[in-house]
Design a binder for these strands. Structure first.
Lengths: 217, 217
DNA sequence: ATAAACAATTGAACACCGTTCAATATGGGG
DNA sequence: CCCCATATTGAACGGTGTTCAATTGTTTAT
């Protein structure tokens, strides 16, 4: 088959991405390959390489969409809550919920590392940044005295923790008996972390309980 | 070449694992393949499949060794510390240090998922369990009133958090400027979490700060 | 209307991967 | 010394991602 002009490049790109999303959601990253995508959209492999630089590029786009959807979910959660501490807890649980409802897509986002040593593009980084921003906002309401840099650090520490629980849960390394226990872990982490924040910042440093870090600020 | 009896199967196995460890440490999981291992130990690919079920099996063994080495490091750290809170902080930092000094090996342990749907063998699970035990011990000293199950949960929440910070740091998703800032994140997470634990467990539940969970116990 | 120029599309081909197994070469027992 | 049991091989198979000469339909010029 030669020229047929059935679809524009943008359209082919869009079709490929939609198919790839479905495959990733159903079979995970392992189930995804160029020939499968190509045949599903009725084009050949060669056409994929006109529209995408390579498969890494394609997967990056799929992940970008997952991040966008995650942002939508998290953002809605953030808008619906009132008290900052309850808000942070709700954000963590929304994050966990997304991860558990779309495990394959979520895992693909965070486990996939490009083969090439190419840097993560800045537009993709921004999608991660704005997720952090959603955490920093209620955190600043919760601790208004936090200077911006420390707030960013505090948010990243908390979100790293939330993320870690999700990963260990999804990869089956938490090994917890019981149905909703991952949610409990999440609540434990967030509430204790926040309570500690309030406590440490609000009280003078006591030598037998504080370590060293908090006394400086 | 036919029979030569240069090495026993155990010896071939050992040689293969040592070579595989080096390759993983230097080039990561992506740099590892059967032919490379085979040529490095002076045998053919076929011999590898006599000694290992498949590459997944081989990688599992490599990861088991990484877990053992991690356990050694963490265990030593645990033995050297005095106060339980300082101990937990030291454990987290030792974990982070291992992850950053052996990034490829550490990532291979946690990011690799077997292709086959085969379960993780129980002897491998035990290696993960005993790592958690090292966390639960000082945690119980820190909070002697914790019932065993809640202690296990509390340890897993904390360790999930520690793990998450490591992962995000290693995959370049934290985006922190400065040298030792990941260490600071780790300290933030652990000290705040511990302070919160003490605070929440020790004081009666106040409606405006506590969420819901801690008031039940 | 016809031809020439152009561009979209293909799919065979290449180099790699994990895995298998018939063929083979050899150490050691009779 | 011969023969056999077996340790070892490596070509072969089906699967990757990726490339690019060849092909074929569309458009433009005459």
């Amino acid at each position: 088959m030669g020229r047929r002009n059935d679809h524009s490049r943008q359209e082919i790109r869009e079709m490929a991405l939609q198919v790839a999303e479905k495959i990733v959601a159903k079979e995970g990253l392992q189930g995804l390959n160029a020939r499968k995508i190509a045949s599903a959209i009725g084009y050949s492999v060669g056409s994929l390489y006109i529209v995408f630089e390579n498969l890494d590029d394609l997967i990056l786009q799929v992940n970008a969409r997952s991040l966008d959807q995650l942002y939508t979910v998290i953002s809605k959660t953030e808008q619906q809550c009132r008290q900052p501490d309850a808000c942070l807890l709700a954000l963590g649980q929304a994050y966990l919920e997304f991860a558990m409802e779309q495990p394959q897509r979520w895992r693909t986002v965070f486990e996939y590392q490009r083969t090439k040593d190419a840097e993560i593009p800045s537009w993709y980084r921004k999608k991660i940044f704005r997720l952090f921003k959603l955490v920093e906002k209620p955190l600043l309401e919760f601790m208004p005295t936090l200077e911006p840099h420390l707030c960013a650090q505090t948010a990243r520490a908390l979100w790293g923790g939330v993320h870690g629980i999700c990963i260990l849960a999804l990869t089956g390394r938490l090994e917890i008996v019981g149905a909703d226990s991952v949610q409990n872990l999440m609540e434990l982490l967030i509430t204790n972390y926040l309570a500690g924040l309030k406590n440490v910042q609000g009280t003078p440093c006591t030598p037998e309980e504080g370590t060293t870090q908090e006394c400086k600020a």
